[in-house]
Design a protein around this nucleic acid. Sequence first.
RNA 1: GCCCUGGUGGUGGAAUUGGUAGACACGCAGGACUUAAAAUCCUGUUUGCAGCAAUGCGAGUGCGGGUUCAAGUCCCGCCUGGGGCACCA
Length: 939
Amino acid sequence: MYFCPLVANTDYSFMEYAHRDIEKKWQEYWKDKEVYKVGNDSTKPKFYVLDMFPYPSGAGLHVGHPLGYIASDILARYKRHCGYNVLHPMGYDAFGLPAEQYALETGQHPAVTTEQNIKRYREQLDNIGFCYDWSREVRTSDPKYYKWTQWIFLQLFHSWYDRSRQKARPISELVAIFEEEGNSNHPCPEDESLQFDARHWKDMKPAQQRNMLMQYRIAYLSHAEVWWCEALGTVLANDEVVNGVSERGGHPVVKKRMNQWFLRITEYADRLLNSLDNLDWTDAMKEMQRNWIGKSTGAEVGFDIDGYAEKIKVFTTRPDTIFGVDFMVLAPEHDLVDIITTGEHKAEVTKYKEYVQSRSERERMAEVKQVTGAFTGAHVIHPFTGKKVPVWISEYVLAGYGTGAIMAVPSGDDRDHAFAKHFNIPITNVFGNKYNGEEAYSDKGGTIENSDFLSGKEVKEAIKLAINSIVEKGIGHAKVNYKLRDAGFSRQRYWGEPFPVVYREGIPYGIDEIGGDINQLPVELPHVDSYKPGPEGQGPLANIEDWVHTGEGNRETNTMPGYAGSSWYFLRYMDPHNDETFADRKATDYWREVDIYIGGTEHAVGHLLYSRMWTKALHDLGHISFDEPFKKLINQGMIQGSSRFVYRINGTNTFVSAGLKKEHKVDVLHVDVKYVDGLELNTEAFKQWRPEYANAEFILEDGKYICGAEIEKMSKSKYNVVNPDDIVAQYGADTFRMYEMFLGPIDVSKPWDTKGIEGVHRFLKKMWRLYNDEQRGWIVTEEAATDAELKVLHKTIKKISEDIEKFSFNTSVSQFMICVNELTAMNCHKHAILEPLAVLIAPFAPHFAEELWQQLGHEGSVVDAAYPEWQEQYVKENSKNYPIAINGKARAEMEFPLDMDITDVEKAVLSNEVVIKWMEGKPLKKFIYVPGRMINVVV
RNA sequence: GCCCUGGUGGUGGAAUUGGUAGACACGCAGGACUUAAAAUCCUGUUUGCAGCAAUGCGAGUGCGGGUUCAAGUCCCGCCUGGGGCACCA
């Protein structure tokens, strides 16, 4: 008789799958032996697998975070088995607003809370058994790291973009050009009409020269309007302002013009656009970047204002419709508005401008059907017809795009049409009968009508003719326009990288220009006692008098934005401890760009675009040898939470089960999912959750309290957060890893449901039992494998390898299950089959595989075991059980050798009695035979 | 309003990319083992009709059309969930 052993003897773990012991053992082993340490000197080919590093928030990791990390970990391990030297690092995007807000509330230094959060993150990550080389960890808030963020900023500050060569060059070379020939070959990006020759340049005062250079620098100082919220003490983003108040707290906000640093990313627009073609990213992702860059070709045309010397410049993609211009629209913020508005319209225009001031761009966008505007009283002269065209202002024209003014063609543009109808402006039809008077004709097809020399011409041809004519008249030129705007690079905050910049008499200098030494970097973030903003909307650093005032000038008190550190972190991992340079050239030449980058789509246009630009700039300036950061990009979907609700009867402490809630007036309350099993509430645990529930009473149905359920975003406030630690503690890291992969395709969003995890856990136990018997212990034999067993193995190797390459991890897990089910059915415990299988599963369940690998008699870790290769001879099928369809409907099955001749197949099929029955004596029309697939008989 | 995505059993999903729809799991139901439980194993599980049953016939991948010998997959038009947006002229 078998008795359950009372003590776990040393052999215990060899009998039963003891995930806790196994995982602890191997995590310690990996750490002690530095199994995941990666060198930069290797004769192996390199492979760089990168996760988007996390912002260490106070909430810790939830089960959604590791989804991408597990996928990349599988890939990294797989590539290592395949003989690559794999770089797979992790770090923290540690500067950011939440830490600062927390500091404002609690007075705790962001460095302290960030450190705590990182510690927590690290514990959680370690739990899951990732193969990160932690010796390469980076933190963007570490002075040793941001020293180089500041250094790169200085490189951008000390360079300009040469449009003729399409690359960044040192500003000193621009100075040499100016001294030689002025700027005739290098128009000023800020103002293309600005011209000077060499003598003019030499005549300028040093301050004037520096001002001029500022208009060329890639990192430059300019002005911008920002939403300033006094109460929150920060500048707010557009979408943080709703109805003219701050979204958080509802405090008043004002627009404030401030000195801001910018990155001249617009100069890179074309290159950022064109090199997308060579990237292995999803089409959706590329499309998002294309739309963001928003290249459009057309013309810039100046319209003379009746009675003024100024012109209204517009950009249009449809210069061919110029005869259909019925009015002009300026953005309400346009500089000319105040100049040209006539006396009688002043009041209305001012009132309208005030209305627009209070509206965020979000609102201006969301309410499309609402047409608003005001007439300025001014007119422009149509350059071809000489007619007077009224000038309006409206919020649907944005100051930031194009010239901030449009020529409105109501017969050809929906919004112009709505505007004309609303304000009763007569509409000129330039599309003949294609325009029906009710809806604008905005297609780019057909001919232009009623348009003098353009009448009867196709759109394409008409555009060309129109531009020619516009150029001839000297009123404009062909122009390429981009939606992309230069990137604001200043934040009025504390918890970010200080700028390595000091001002002398209002002129900014890189600190390397005045001290002359790069060793002055980093400019360290000083400790502050208060996180309150400085005077006049400046950042908190402005409050530290003795930090701001140096012997060499006054420091810049803004800090850099969140994306500064993340724009280049992938380079630092290559050589993270270098104090001489951001990364040794030998290291960057070896590792080059990231081979696989995994992360969410939320960074589609921010981080990913800035990284691309920084990489291109560093490449232009000769610091690295490649100009794209991320060769292949995989987007992981969001894991949503499944919230649970309880129903409290109004004014009582009695909770009614979901099925009975209609009989009462109830409050719907989120309940923490950890007190709910499926839909059934653990009422005792619930009572202990919070003091106010201690005396809760319940109205049950069938003896149970049933909760309501809903799928929502996983968040602390919804009590639907599932902590990976809990899952790992119960089922083990290997089960957790495989279950996350089994949930579905990596790129699809899906709700978390812990229920299904049992299946994966059972699978691992079942696989374990191929090697170990509960009572007999190790049961692997040295018997030779049969063909059937080899077929199962090689089929699995083939499927898993292919699936990993295409990131189809959910089907990989399925295949493992199929394989183990089949081997179990065959009662196969053979070394020849089970050893390769252990290697195969190592990327997915690394602790599990290590233990098996050791049991199989190997010294050391499984991570460097060669990945098994599948062989055609074992996988090959030589016959196929064909479905036979009659008129496309499957009616019978017949088995044929794969190489059977079609005429023989046809003969055999047509003599099958089921086939004969279904042909109902009708003549054969067509016989379709797809070898290896199916057969269709058409009658 | 525009852009991008998705819609397959009770649930998560699979489908060799145009070739037997529902793999693999979860859940559920029934059974075996056990004094009992846990663990494990076996059977069934899209749906309607017929049958004790093996099975047979019909329907079926959001809805309506179309292309094709053949459609979850391609085309057209709708409905709908999710995500994004800077009214981009």
